[in-house]
Design a protein around this nucleic acid. Structure first.
Lengths: 215, 215
DNA sequence: TAGATTGTTAATCGATTAACAATC
DNA sequence: TAGATTGTTAATCGATTAACAATC
């Protein structure tokens, strides 16, 4: 379909474009030039034009880009018009908070189930859905065919549970564990959120800028 | 101090090295070669040697790297021996879950306070600390001099609250909001965690691999 | 038509990989 | 000494920026 594969660097900028365009739209912008958008986003106009051109010609010479049309197109590229069924694995503090906090709908997903092993958690509600016993997982997958899973389970069961999920037909993971899915499984799609690593990078940044000042 | 500034790409790999080396240490490894580590981590040996050499000569020719010594050095580079005082802004679902879930100590921080505006949340405990009324923020900062903040506050107050925090001497942010700190404030250190964007990228990955199969 | 701004090619910059001499 | 493996330089690859002709 696409002539050349889109590079990862471009993809990772798309959600941010999508957000900014949404804000612009809300503020009544009809059109915007790459130069003006670049200024607002702290990028170069060149990069913006290169990025958008990966997907086709969205702009008009001498005019710029139509804000709402451009946003709509990026939304389609990102698959935000889809409703991929997704389940939550591990409804502890973090899993519960993330599932309650994130609007899955507007990001191309529909949360259809949540599973945990702990009796205190099973039966509790997260928004509209009820946390189920993990023993019901196989049957649930057979019936409802979730395609993706949010992994908020402890490190030590991550490998085993992931195996199972793949067996049951799940092929995409939003991974909050440190288990390295992408190394062991080649045919699945993984997006890692390594909160701990992120905090460590902040630690580095703090300490390295301090050194900078002293040198 | 450092001869050449270390590139961002290298820094973002360090926490992962640190984790892997910790596991190896736990498994009784004394030494490891760049080739063997590369295999385990899905990188090239070249890249590993380049990365480590940014910081000095950690290895020994003909032998490889001493696992625990290398890990210790990376820890120091990342500032994990520090205890930067940090506060939580916004102790709702997400803020509470993240603060309870993350081990700040092992990542160079000490959580010393939490603030919220909601009466139902104020007074509650997160681990050892009690959530305070945000009206106490100024005095607390004057007395305890936090240097960093976890931002888990709603989008619409993010800008205003951030101004205040910077005024009170906070210069580093672990930012879970979509407010674009780095554009408006140049002299602060920011690490963004854009959970929503991350989920969108998973959406793209799912849909683009499906297209791949059909083409 | 003149001015603006894109789409696109070329130039630059940075990051990754390959190669190999140094050395343990 | 011979074998292994680093540290480092050179080559390649990819991503960003600059430039400009095309065109609205």
């Amino acid at each position: 379909m696409s002539k050349n594969a889109i590079s990862n660097s471009v993809i990772r900028r798309l959600p941010r474009y999508y957000r900014f365009l949404g804000e612009l739209e809300g503020n009544g912008y009809i059109r915007i030039s790459s130069r003006e958008l670049a200024e607002k986003m702290g990028l170069t106009a060149s990069q913006i034009r290169q990025d958008f051109n990966c997907f086709g010609e969205f702009g008009q010479q001498g005019y710029g880009y139509n804000v709402s049309e451009l946003r709509r197109q990026i939304g389609i590229i990102l698959g935000l018009d889809k409703k991929t069924p997704i389940i939550l694995m591990g409804a502890g503090n973090l899993g519960k908070a993330i599932s309650a906090h994130i609007d899955f709908q507007s990001r191309g997903f529909e949360l259809i189930g949540a599973f945990d092993i702990s009796p205190e958690i099973i039966g509790k509600k997260i928004g509209m859905i009820t946390v189920r016993d993990i023993s019901e997982l196989e049957q649930f997958c057979a019936e409802n065919k979730p395609q993706a899973a949010v992994l908020c389970i402890p490190q030590d069961v991550a490998e085993k549970e992931t195996e199972r999920l793949i067996e049951y037909g799940i092929h995409a993971f939003w991974n909050f564990t440190h288990y390295d899915l992408s190394i062991t499984h080649e045919n699945v799609v993984v997006e890692n959120v390594h909160l701990g690593d992120s905090l460590i990078i902040l630690s580095y940044a703090i300490n390295s800028t301090e050194n900078e000042i002293n040198s």
